[in-house]
Every structure is written in structure tokens, then in C-alpha cells.
């Protein structure tokens, strides 16, 4: 069974998903960060595939993308690094990134490599739903990969229902209208939006992303969804880290238990 599906069968609260950019801070940090995440008790690891033009991302993640590219990261290098990943890492792994590098790699080739190294799903924010259903979904299904879609406070109910139909694993609930790394904290407006979505009885669990950075925001988000995603703040932790393993373990402990 897909590891994301399996996770949510046994755990539906306080699920912690950490985003980091492949090849950042240095090219070969990808596997050490994954191992540290598992050791620290993260539930899902989301690996960013760096891109030259990440329009949905704020400054922190943009810079990590640029540094990773300058370090020599590419999909080819990433799949090399992830070979043998499943001998060491058992938590679900998601690849997140923009569609163009995936298109150039070739959809079938990409999905095949994902299956080979043991990736469980994808977040491709600029892949439209119609194109996904017509051209991509059959290939994703063939290789046992789940595609995770985003919803925002502006996404209509009809569209959320359609996203719920074609999503797998979970739905990425963007907390507010912004690029990544902009917001902080959870407002009354956000609470109303989370409650509205919770009342819809969707088949997929939700993880809240954007604005989650510490124990307080993580705990709060977990009251309204199955858990939360931390991206920009974790990149800042990695940027300042003197020892990846120690600092990752310490940060995740601080998020989980305060």
C-alpha cells in the first residue's frame, strides 16, 4: 500500500510534514536531512525539486531553490541521491515542485524513477486539474503515485469537491492567500475557513500549510486538520544549522512538544 495512505489509516491528528529543498544547504544534504527527519519523528518528508522560477514561493524558498541549482541539483542528481533511500527511510516521501522540469524529464520516466526509489506522491502546484486528469493521472496510477492538490480560502466548494475526487493521500490546505513564508499565526478568518472545509465531510484528510512554524502554530493547526506542513521555517533552520542531524532533531522536538 502507498505509504501516505497507510499513514492516514493509523494517524489522523498531529501529522507533521516537513518541506526542504533538495540540494540545500549543500548538494549532498538530501539523504542526511531525510534520515534526520525520520529519526526526529516527522511523519512525512516533502522534498522540493528546485526550479529557476518558483512563482508560488516567497523569498526564503526561492533562495533555497537558487542555491540548490547553483550547487548542481537536478532531477537526475536527485534520483541518484535517493537510490537506496528505502533501506534507510520508511516514512512517506513526497516530491514537490513546478511542472516544467518534470515535463523535460518526461512524465513516464519521472514516475518510473519515483517508483524505483520509493517516492509516494507529488505536489505540483502549477499542474492544472484538467490536464492532470487527462494526461497525467493514468501514468501516476500506473506507478502507484498519489497527486496532492492545494486548496485556498478562495477555492469554491464545488472546486474543493472536485479536488477531493481526484486527490490522493491528503489535501494541502493553504491557510491564506499568499506565497510561502509570508504569513504567521492563525487568524479568526482562517479558523472559519478550516471549519467550513471540515464540515464538508471530504474523503481526503487535510494538512494545513503556510504560516506554520513552531509548537504553537502546529498545535493550533492540528486542531483544525489532520496536521500541518512546515516549509519556509524549516529552510531557515537548515540555513542556520551547524550540524544537520542535531539541529533537525532539536527543531522537530520543539515543534512537537514545545
Amino acid at each position: 500500500m502507498n505509504r501516505i495512505t497507510e499513514l492516514f489509516q493509523t494517524k489522523l491528528h498531529s501529522v507533521l510534514n516537513l518541506y526542504f529543498t533538495a540540494g540545500y544547504p549543500t548538494l549532498n544534504d538530501t539523504m542526511p536531512i531525510l534520515e534526520a527527519l525520520q529519526e526526529a519523528g516527522a511523519d512525512i518528508a516533502e522534498i522540493g525539486m528546485p526550479y529557476s522560477d518558483p512563482v508560488a514561493d516567497g523569498e526564503t524558498i526561492q533562495q533555497s531553490n537558487q542555491i540548490a541549482l547553483d550547487n548542481g541539483m537536478s532531477l537526475k542528481v536527485l534520483f541518484e541521491q535517493l537510490k537506496g533511500m528505502r533501506e534507510k527511510v520508511q516514512i512517506p516521501v513526497i516530491l514537490m515542485g513546478y511542472i516544467n522540469p518534470v515535463l523535460q524529464f518526461g512524465i513516464e520516466n519521472f514516475c518510473q524513477k519515483c517508483q524505483e526509489v520509493g517516492v509516494d506522491g507529488m505536489i505540483l502546484p502549477d499542474l492544472p486539474m484538467d490536464e492532470y486528469e487527462e494526461e497525467y493521472k493514468p501514468v501516476f496510477d500506473k506507478y502507484g503515485l498519489l497527486n496532492i492538490f492545494l486548496i485556498t480560502p478562495q477555492t469554491t466548494e464545488a472546486r474543493i469537491r472536485r479536488i477531493d475526487e481526484i486527490s490522493g493521500g491528503f489535501i494541502y490546505m493553504v491557510s491564506s492567500a499568499s506565497v510561502t513564508g509570508k504569513t504567521s499565526g492563525i487568524s479568526d478568518e482562517m479558523e472559519a475557513y478550516f471549519n467550513r472545509v471540515n464540515a464538508m465531510n471530504l474523503k481526503n484528510p487535510r494538512l494545513i500549510g503556510f504560516g506554520i512554524k513552531d509548537h504553537e502554530t502546529f498545535t493550533k493547526a492540528s486542531e483544525y486538520a489532520a496536521g500541518a506542513i512546515i516549509g519556509s521555517q524549516f529552510i531557515r533552520v537548515l540555513q542556520a544549522a551547524s550540524d544537520i542531524k542535531t539541529d533537525v532533531v532539536e527543531y522537530i522536538k520543539s515543534v512537537k512538544v514545545g
Binding site: T152, Q154, T155, V179
Partner: peptide, 11 residues
């Protein structure tokens, strides 16, 4: 062509 945009721009 098409509209390859993140969900935040969809509305």
C-alpha cells in the same frame, strides 16, 4: 497555451 497556475491564482 492553457493556464498552468497555482491554486492561489485560480479564482
Amino acid at each position: 497555451g492553457g493556464a498552468y497556475i497555482p491554486e492561489m491564482l485560480h479564482p
